[in-house]
Each structure stands twice: as structure tokens, then as C-alpha cells.
Design a protein around this nucleic acid. Structure first.
Length: 522
DNA sequence: CTAGGGTTAG
């Protein structure tokens, strides 16, 4: 799988070093960072390109954005063409970033700090420009900026996320010739951890077995591997490594047990009641084993179980467990509370959920946007516009917890369906002002709803807008719009749209497959 | 970067 992915993504290598003369650096706005003023350095004047670049970079930093998913997760079918196009877009962004980086370096008395190099190396790694990234590492070394383990950590992470695990391991081995310090167990564990987090447990296990005698082993390392096998849904293998650890005389701790517990709970299906009961039984077994070893389950352990109850829509069991943990002297966190709130809301028990939020605030735990989103989802289901708006205004006024992009998306979806377009506009503007910006989901949601209402022209406007913001529409979005425009004889609008797509060299040919993705969570 | 938990879109 990994090799076929690599083939799909092996784009022609280009030297991204754009000559500085190609840049149009207007001197309109000063670059306002306090650090520059403090260090008495000349202020930088970014070009409009640089502004756009930073915006796009922000967009693509979003872990929920599909762009990175194909590079981070294996075993998912994505249209290679779509990925290719997206990568080209990202590539352009990193080109601008690199030009800016070089330009800044050429300013008198200005010198990038290692952090700047790290950002640049990270951005380049994202678009698989590893040759240029390596150049920067060498440049750091030449400038006596001392590439550190942080530098190699970033490079390694990007290599792994691109599926280039062998190169990542080589980079790890090369590290010692750059970094004065000898590679320690912590750093080796980071390599294993990153491999596991991106799903390459087999590679991690291989590397672990090869070098465990050199670095030595500890609980944390085994925990990483147990996590990895759980992540790819191989609980048996997770169990095997767990036992291996115990056999070696290494005592598992709370974290190890929680990783195992999460492995049992997270992926298990709860649909027929028996499966739910079996999962709970297995979870209880872990709890018992913990206590036998004299390890008290902590907040995380309980939060994992609360999540299962919440997924299974068992409000009573949720509340019981919550009370149980409190009686054992364990203070619930936002995470624990949010699971219960979600459960109560999804079971229609809004008042109880509200009461629980009051309780958590009383206990000094502040709700997050996600906590409130549970309420918004329920209000959306009930079409209760008034309560939704009340809560929304309350959130914005108290600014204790600002709405998240998800909050805006839920509300936009709700009010478009209710045909309250003036409110949609208000929320949309708020979202833009918040800086989290409309994301791919926001646009997709809005455009699809507008299409449903046959508001083709408006839908078209947003379609063009999202492209201009550097977001690549999904194939379905394009098709829906295309059909609508042709059917309602809006050929002029259609031609305008087509021109836009040509300008941006975006194509939605028949070779495109529908794709599904699940975001990788960092 | 440095072993673990929640919210979410279709």
C-alpha cells in the first residue's frame, strides 16, 4: 500500500528557489511583530502574495482539511488527481513562503532564528519538497544555527506523514552527524511514536526490535507500540506487546492501561446491545486488573468509559459513572463532562445537560466550544431557532468561550434549512471576522443548501469564492452546481464558472472517484 | 516533537 501511495504522489521534483527578483514586494504595511521591534531589526514588508500565503497556510494547517489526509493515512482511497491538484496548490504556497524566507534573509542585519527555519522546513515537508528542506538543514549548520533534535523531529514527522518511512529512519540515523549530543532513548521513542501515530506500526516494531538493545526499553516505549497496534485495530497484537513488557519485568502504569482501554473501547461497535455489553465487560476487566496491580484508574480511564456510554446513548449509565468517579475523589475534566453533556443532549434531555454545564462551571471547569456544540446540534434537530440564537449570542458576548468553526457550520446549516438567510449572512460574516474562516465544510454545506433551494447564482458566487480562498471544492459540489445551471438554462453563469476553473486549472473529469476521508487527529 | 481521554462535517 505504502509503495503504491508513493507512486501516486511522486511528483516531478522542481527547484523551488524562486529568484528574489520575481517577487513583488510592496511596501504598504509594516510587518508588526514585537520581537522585531525588541531586537531593533528592520521591519519587513510583506507582499500581497505573502499575505495570501499566510492565509492559505492557516487554512492548510487545519487538521480537518482533507489535503493532508492522503499523505498521513494509508489505506484510504482518494482520487489521485484531486490530491495532485491540491498538492500543486500547496506547492505554490510553499514557493511563495520560501521566496519570502529568502528575501527576509537578504535584509541587512536580519537573521532567521532556528524557529523560522523550523517553520520553513515544516512547510516544505508538507508539500514533499524534502530536497529543499534538507538544503535548509545544511544551511542552518553552515550558519552555526545548530540544527537540533527539534529540527530533525520536524523533518522526520513530515517524512513519515508522506509515507517515506525509510527516509525518515535514515534522517534519524544522520542526526548524530549534525547534533553534537548523542541520540538518546527519548529521541528514539519519538521516532517510534511518530511512526505509530501515522499508522506505520509494523515499521515501528521492526525498528524497535532492531535497536532495542542499543537504546534500551522502558514503559513509555511499550506504551507507544501498544497505542500503535490499537490504532490500526489490532488489539491482539497490542495485548501481545503488553504481555511482552510485563514478562520483561517492566511494570505497566496508568497511561499504559488507558491506552489499552482506549484500544478496547474506541473502535468497538456498540450496535447490537450484546456488543455494547461485551465492550463494557472488557473495559471493566481492565479496571479490575489495574486495581489488582494497585493502580487507581484516573480521569482519563473514566473519560474513555464515559465516551462509550455516550456513544451507546445511555444517559443513566453516564450519570452513574460520573457520580462514581466523583465519589472516588476524581475530578471530571472538560472532556469527561462534554461526553456526558453530549449524551444528554442527543437523548433530548437539554435541561439536564444545562444543569450539568452549570455544575461544571461551579466546579471551576469551563466548557469549550465543543461542549456548546452539543446543544447547537440538538437545537438544530428541533429547529429551535430562538434557543440556538440565544446561546450563540451568549457565547459571543461572554467571550468566555468563542464559537469554533464547527459552531458556525452547525448554525449555518440550520438557518439555511430554515430559510432564514439574514441570520445566515450574519453568522457567515461573524465566522469570517473570527479568523477561523469558512473552511471546506462551511462552503460545501452552504453551496449544497443553496443548490437545494435552486439559488444557483448565489451558489456559484460562493463556489468561486472558495476557490479564490484556496479551497478545492469536492466533486459532488461541482456536479450539483453544473447540473443545476444547465437545467435552469443559466448558460452565461455556467461559462463564467468554467472560465474561472480554467484560470485556476481545476478539472473535474469523469475519472474522478468519489472519495471518503477521515481526518487524522494530531 | 517528547507515552493516554472529548467536541465535528457528510
Amino acid at each position: 500500500m505504502a509503495s503504491s501511495m508513493a507512486r501516486i504522489f511522486s511528483l516531478p521534483r522542481s527547484t523551488t528557489t524562486t529568484p528574489i527578483s520575481h517577487l513583488s514586494l510592496s511596501k504598504t504595511r509594516p510587518f508588526s511583530t514585537t520581537t522585531h521591534d525588541q531586537l531593533n531589526l528592520p521591519s519587513l514588508h510583506p507582499s500581497p502574495d505573502a499575505d495570501q500565503m499566510s492565509q492559505l497556510l492557516l487554512h492548510h494547517h487545519n487538521p480537518y482539511h482533507p489535503t493532508e489526509s492522503p499523505l498521513q493515512l494509508i489505506g484510504i482511497l482518494l482520487s489521485p488527481h484531486l490530491v495532485h491538484q491540491t498538492l500543486i496548490r500547496l506547492r505554490n504556497v510553499s514557493k511563495i513562503a520560501l521566496s519570502f524566507f529568502h528575501w527576509a534573509k537578504s535584509q541587512p542585519n536580519y537573521r532567521h532564528d532556528p524557529a523560522a527555519y523550523h517553520l520553513m522546513i515544516d512547510a516544505l515537508g508538507k508539500v514533499r519538497q524534502f530536497d529543499v528542506a534538507w538544503q535548509l538543514v545544511i544551511e542552518m549548520d553552515n550558519l552555526k544555527l545548530k540544527p537540533s533534535f527539534a529540527t530533525f523531529g520536524i523533518l522526520t514527522r513530515r517524512l513519515i506523514s508522506a509515507g517515506l518511512t525509510r527516509q525518515a529512519i535514515r534522517a534519524f540515523d544522520d542526526m548524530e552527524s549534525f547534533v553534537e549530543k548523542e541520540t538518546s532513548r527519548d529521541e528514539f521513542r519519538f521516532l517510534l511514536d511518530t511512526l505509530c501515530k501515522y499508522g506505520y506500526v509494523k515499521v515501528a516494531t521492526e525498528v524497535f526490535n532492531e535497536r532495542k538493545s542499543r537504546f534500551g526499553v522502558d514503559v513509555k516505549m511499550y506504551t507507544v507500540l501498544v497505542y500503535g497496534w490499537c490504532k490500526i485495530n489490532r488489539p491482539k497484537m497490542a495485548e501481545k506487546f503488553f504481555r511482552e513488557m510485563v514478562d520483561r519485568g517492566i511494570e505497566p502504569n496508568v497511561v499504559t492501561y488507558n491506552v489499552l482501554l482506549d484500544g478496547i473501547c474506541r473502535k468497538s461497535s456498540l450496535h447490537p446491545e450484546e456488543r455494547f455489553e461485551r465492550t463494557i465487560k472488557d473495559a471493566e476487566k481492565v479496571f479490575d486488573e489495574m486495581r489488582e496491580r494497585g493502580i487507581e484508574p484516573d480521569v482519563t480511564s473514566y473519560s474513555i468509559v464515559l465516551h462509550v456510554y455516550s456513544r451507546a446513548h445511555k444517559p443513566e449509565l453516564c450519570l452513574d459513572k460520573l457520580n462514581m468517579m466523583k465519589s472516588r475523589g476524581i475530578c471530571p475534566t472538560v472532556v469527561s463532562y462534554t461526553s456526558v453533556v453530549k449524551c444528554l443532549c442527543s437523548c433530548g434531555r437539554i435541561e439536564d445537560a444545562e444543569e450539568l454545564v452549570n455544575e461544571m462551571v461551579g466546579n471551576g471547569v469551563s466548557p469549550t466550544a465543543g461542549t456548546y456544540n452539543c446543544f447547537f446540534k440538538e437545537y438544530r434537530g428541533r429547529k429551535d431557532a430562538d434557543r440556538a440564537l440565544n446561546l450563540y449570542r451568549k457565547m459571543r458576548q461572554e467571550s468566555q468561550q468563542l464559537p469554533s468553526v464547527h459552531t458556525y457550520n452547525i448554525l449555518v446549516g440550520m438557518f439555511v434549512k430554515l430559510d432564514r438567510m439574514e441570520i445566515v449572512k450574519e453568522i457567515w460574516d461573524d465566522m469570517k471576522a473570527s479568523g477561523g474562516g469558512p473552511d471546506l465544510d462551511s462552503y460545501t454545506l452552504l453551496i449544497h443548501s443553496l443548490c437545494e433551494k435552486k439559488k444557483w447564482k448565489e451558489a456559484c458566487q460562493f463556489f468561486v469564492e472558495m476557490i479564490e480562498r484556496g479551497l478545492l471544492p469536492q466533486k459532488v459540489t461541482f456536479e450539483t452546481l453544473y447540473r443545476g445551471l444547465i437545467q435552469s438554462d443559466m448558460l452565461r453563469t455556467w461559462r463564467r464558472l468554467k472560465k474561472k476553473l480554467e484560470e485556476e486549472s481545476i478539472t473535474f473529469g469523469s475519472e474522478f472517484q468519489n472519495y471518503h476521508f477521515k481526518p487524522y487527529r494530531r
